[in-house]
Simulated scan of single mutants.
Amino acid sequence: MELREFLFAPLAGHTLTFAITARERGIFSGAARLKQLAGELGLEVTWSAPEGYALEPGSCLFRGRGEATAIIRAEEMLLGVVGKPSGVATAAAGFVRQAGERIKVVCGAWKKVAPEIRGELRQAIATGGAGIRITERPFIYLDKNYVRLLGGVEPAVDRARAYDPERVIVVQIRGEGRPIAAEAEAAVKAGAGIIMVDTGHLKDLANVVTAAQQGGWREKVKLAFAGGVTPAGLEEVIDAGADIVDVGRAIIDAPLLDLSLDVEGISL
Rank of each mutant, 00 (worst) to 15 (best):
Tyr141Asn: 04
Tyr146Pro: 01
Lys84Thr: 04
Ala212Pro: 01
Glu185Met: 12
Arg178Cys: 11
Pro138Cys: 06
Trp217Tyr: 12
Glu136Lys: 15
Val147Glu: 06
Ile134Leu: 15
Glu166Cys: 13
Val221Gly: 02
Ile169Phe: 14
Lys203Glu: 10
Gly175Ser: 07
Met77Phe: 09
Arg137Pro: 07
Val197Lys: 11
Val170Phe: 14
Trp110Leu: 07
Glu219Val: 08
Ile169Gln: 09
Gly216Asn: 01
Asp143Val: 12
Ala93Met: 00
Ala93Trp: 07
Lys189Cys: 00
Arg97Gln: 08
Gly215Gln: 07
Val197Asp: 04
Pro179Arg: 11
Val168Cys: 03
Val88Leu: 02
Leu205Val: 02
Val208Asp: 00
Leu79Asp: 02
Ala206Gly: 00
Ala186Met: 07
Asn207Asp: 05
Lys84Trp: 11
Arg133Gly: 08
Val81Tyr: 09
Trp110Pro: 02
Lys222Gly: 06
Thr210Gly: 00
Val157Gly: 06
Ile180Ala: 13
Pro179Met: 12
Val113Ala: 07
Arg137Ile: 14
Val208Lys: 02
Phe139Val: 14
Tyr141Pro: 01
Leu205Ala: 02
Arg148Asn: 11
Ala184Ser: 08
Tyr163Gln: 08
Phe95Asp: 01
Asp204Asn: 10
Ile117Thr: 14
Asn207Gln: 09
Thr210Pro: 00
Ile117Ser: 06
Asn145Val: 13
Arg137Phe: 15
Leu149Tyr: 13
Gly175Tyr: 13
Thr210Asp: 00
Trp110Ser: 03
Arg167Glu: 03
Lys111Phe: 09
Ile194Trp: 04
Ala160Arg: 08
Thr127Gly: 10
Phe95Ala: 08
Asp204Trp: 08
Arg148Ile: 15
Arg118His: 10
Val208Pro: 00
Arg97Thr: 10
Ser86Arg: 07
Gly87Phe: 03
Val188Gln: 04
Ile132Asp: 01
Asp204Pro: 02
Lys84Pro: 00
Arg118Tyr: 09
Arg133Phe: 15
Gly215Cys: 12
Trp110Thr: 05
Gly131Thr: 08
Arg97Glu: 03
Gly129Trp: 10
Pro85Cys: 04
Ile194Gly: 05
Met196Asp: 00
Val113Cys: 03
Leu142Lys: 09
Leu79Gln: 06
Thr127Arg: 11
Gln172Met: 15
Val88Tyr: 05
Val157His: 05
Ile194Val: 12
Asn207Thr: 00
Gln213Asp: 00
Tyr146Met: 05
Thr90Tyr: 11
